[in-house]
Design a protein around this nucleic acid. Structure first.
Lengths: 113, 113
DNA sequence: GTCGTAGTTCGACGTTCGTCGATCATCGAA
DNA sequence: TTCGATGATCGACGAACGTCGAACTACGAC
């Protein structure tokens, strides 16, 4: 289906294990880093990773259900953004510590190269 | 085998995804909370959870390989401790943010009840 | 030496996960 | 209305995971 107002969980309903599971996967962590590297939102199509489209949709769904990202629909296309402020309220310091650690998993898509 | 000086990875060789994967499981998170709730180490046998012994051993191995815990052998029994200081150096703020969030997953084994 | 204890490893089982191609639903444009 | 594009959903596949009981191994005690 084309994106039409997705369900986003309230952060207070999200458990820590759910968030950690969502982040504990290389591709999803890359996506989160990618989103964190830019203020605001990012177009779906601009998230280019070496995976199939359905796989990306699947990962975004998991991130969405974990309360990590927000989907906004605009016509046929949609835009993804990090729910960083809400995340900070629910899990203080978690996102920052995950993002600030250099582990060789670069955003890779925010810089020109 | 009886515990005889296990292999512990250097924290600098541990990747973030490995740590997150290790923490993204209810039982293991419980163990980590349990260890964090007390200064120092905890005897293997005192970790009583509703799981088989082999399963506990398996989880401890994963936590060990993720650099989260340390095993010390003393005769036939062994003692587990959190590598919190080293963890803090490698992933600043991560462990603290994970531990400080109330998510209904209590240590349950450090209090009397 | 033999025996009992403590924890690890092995092999198996069912479940979940990441991945894909194909199909479907919704929107804008012609 | 018809068409093309954008994502979501479906069904299938192999791999990885959590779980267990059983066998194994190293140690202390006798």
């Amino acid at each position: 289906m084309a994106p039409r107002e997705h369900a986003h969980p309230a952060l207070c309903d999200v458990e820590l294990v759910t968030v950690l599971s969502a982040l504990a996967e290389p591709t999803r962590l890359r996506i989160v880093r990618m989103l964190a590297a830019m203020e605001g939102e990012r177009a779906w199509k601009d998230i280019d990773l070496p995976i199939a489209q359905s796989t990306l949709s699947h990962h975004l769904k998991i991130l969405r259900n974990a309360g990590l990202v927000h989907n906004r629909s605009e016509g046929t296309r949609c835009f993804i953004s990090l729910r960083d402020d809400e995340l900070e309220s629910r899990f203080p310091g978690l996102l920052e510590s995950v993002l600030s650690c250099g582990d060789g998993l670069a955003p890779e898509g925010t810089r020109d190269a």
